[in-house]
């Protein structure tokens, strides 16, 4: 009797265990999901969370073009102003200033990053190339940031050094800059206000009276002396050949002398224009180098470096 009961009991246990085993084996494939959830592992590499993580990785690697794609996909599911900022900043870093400005604008209101976004917006507008438009934007109400008002005003003033616009009053201009930069900024301001340009008409007239004098006026001394000598020698050769009745050579050298004279007169005019273009180019380079080295005196936004 005991044996019967014990066998029956064991059989029922085996039956029970087999059932449990079958259920466990059936549930095993789902264990990954359960395990993933409990261990916080998301195996979908394209989930918003993973897209953000990967996007941040790309952003730090300075692969902004790819980071943009990841952030864009993330923002389709979750709205986050930090990510929006990074998305816009990525456009800015690859030189797509229009897109950057538009995206910074989307964080202007109702965000803790509103002031930073406004500053970045002005920065993107500044680098967009049209300083006139930038100045117009600076005058618009509703975009102003109290926190960075001084920085944006400084950028507004710097823009006057970058194009042909009329410079603001000296005191008003210099007041906006910190003491450490004031001397250099004053120097740049004066260079812009009183550029050392040469008059092309003066250069041309000088060369008409004395061949090469116009070139000497524009600072091309050796060219001026060479032009004087060449024109002089050719004229002498023409005269000398005519004197010795070598008419063919006389006309040849006379033609060359006239060609050289005309070339010197025109060359002096062009030389003055080239000189002026050089002055402008050097000034532009100096302004850009000076302010670029100092990040246009703008504050750095630190949170961009983190993985947040």
């Amino acid at each position: 009797m005991n044996n019967y009961f014990s066998n029956h009991f064991l059989n029922s246990i085996n039956f029970y265990q087999t059932k449990v085993l079958a259920i466990i084996l059936f549930l095993l494939p789902f264990s990954t999901i359960l395990f993933s959830q409990t261990m916080n592992i998301d195996e979908n590499y394209f989930s918003p969370k993973n897209r953000l993580a990967f996007g941040n990785f790309l952003f730090i690697q300075e692969d902004y073009l790819r980071a943009i794609e990841e952030y864009k996909n993330y923002l389709m599911y979750i709205d986050n102003d930090t990510v929006r900022f990074k998305y816009a900043e990525s456009f800015y870093r690859i030189g797509k200033y229009n897109e950057a400005a538009d995206n910074f604008k989307s964080i202007f209101y109702g965000s803790l990053l509103s002031d930073e976004a406004k500053l970045a917006f002005y920065k993107a507008s500044f680098f967009n190339g049209s300083y006139n438009s930038f100045r117009d934007i600076c005058k618009m109400e509703g975009y102003q940031s109290e926190k960075y008002a001084k920085d944006i005003n400084r950028l507004f003033l710097i823009s006057h050094l970058m194009d042909e616009s009329i410079l603001p009053d000296t005191n008003h201009f210099l007041k906006a800059f910190p003491d450490s930069t004031k001397n250099k900024v004053r120097e740049l301001y004066m260079m812009k206000k009183f550029p050392s340009k040469k008059n092309p008409t003066t250069a041309m007239l000088l060369s008409m009276f004395i061949p090469g004098a116009g070139k000497i006026y524009t600072g091309e001394i050796s060219d001026g002396i060479t032009a004087l000598l060449t024109t002089g020698v050719l004229a002498y050769l023409a005269a000398n050949n005519f004197k010795h009745e070598h008419n063919f050579r006389g006309w040849l050298f006379a033609g060359l002398a006239v060609f050289s004279y005309a070339g010197t007169v025109y060359g002096s005019y062009a030389s003055a224009q080239i000189y002026n273009a050089g002055v402008r180019l050097n000034f532009d380079n100096e302004v850009k180098l000076y302010f670029e080295k100092r990040n246009y005196l703008l504050p750095k936004i630190n949170f961009l470096k983190t993985n947040d």
């Binding site: 095993l28 494939p29 264990s31 990954t32 395990f35 993933s36 592992i41 195996e43 590499y45």
Partner: peptide, 14 residues
């Protein structure tokens, strides 16, 4: 062991 193996294999598959 089967459970862990399954998780590992699945991660590797991914």
């Amino acid at each position: 062991t089967l459970f862990l193996f399954n998780v590992q294999v699945n991660a590797q598959n991914q």
